[in-house]
């Protein structure tokens, strides 16, 4: 986890009291280069010249991205109440896993609230909603409380799961990607949807897919 504190000597008063931990580690952009990212409907593909994982794959963060039809890597993360949650907990019912950049940013707030407002529809479809970002549990707790979010927010500090799932970054690696996966009852990925700046569209797309399952 990279901790980013602004150098006070270079930008003294431009940074009043707003330094924060950066939940997006530098190595993430390497992973995402093998993925596609959608930005206002445009798809940017990055062909990667990354080496094939060598004899010490455990030390690299380079993994294949999760695609439709695959079973994604499992995870065990803490939710907003500090309880441990595993992906396997949701087996037997559809689950929407959405990766978002950070709590309390405009797009993420819109997206979280849009999931909240359509939560009944997800329940009707028998699906669970899980949001994942690099923020810590206390940030998630405050975010969920402020916007009355009825679903689980998981804390992926260090962006380990984000990397394992191969969520692409946006704007040439400067922004953590906003990507949603819909897993069916068997745990297979049925939809991968990426759209950074139209966060509400994630809800429409996932509901459309869930209703067709």
């Amino acid at each position: 986890m990279a901790t980013l504190t602004l150098p006070k000597h270079s930008l003294p008063s431009l940074l009043p009291s707003q330094t924060r931990r950066n939940p997006f580690s530098q190595s993430l952009s390497i992973v995402s280069k093998s993925s596609q990212s959608q930005f206002f409907g445009l798809k940017f593909s990055f062909s990667s010249n990354l080496p094939v994982p060598s004899s010490t794959p455990a030390k690299t963060s380079i993994v294949a991205k999760v695609n439709k039809g695959q079973v994604p890597p499992s995870f065990t993360l803490k939710d907003q109440d500090g309880k441990t949650v595993s992906l396997s907990k949701f087996k037997g019912k559809p689950v929407v896993v959405y990766f978002y950049p950070a709590d309390e940013t405009p797009g993420c707030t819109k997206q979280a609230c849009a999931f909240r407002d359509s939560y009944e529809k997800f329940k009707k479809a028998g699906a669970e909603v899980v949001g994942i970002s690099g923020d810590d549990t206390s940030s998630h707790k405050a975010f969920a409380k402020k916007y009355k979010l009825p679903y689980t927010l998981l804390s992926d500090e260090g962006n380990k799961v984000r990397k394992e799932w191969g969520v692409p970054s946006d704007l040439f690696g400067t922004l953590p990607g906003r990507q949603t996966y819909v897993l069916d009852k068997k745990g297979e990925v049925q939809l991968v949807y990426n759209n950074q700046f139209q966060p509400e569209k994630h809800i429409d797309e996932t509901l459309k897919l869930l209703q067709s399952l």
């Binding site: 980013l4 504190t5 602004l6 940074l15 950066n22 940013t105 405009p106 400067t174 922004l175 700046f197």
Partner: peptide, 13 residues
């Protein structure tokens, strides 16, 4: 908004 996000993730502002 994109610039604000980039500044936020790069500089924490």
């Amino acid at each position: 908004e994109a610039l604000e996000m980039v500044l936020f993730f790069k500089l924490g502002v």
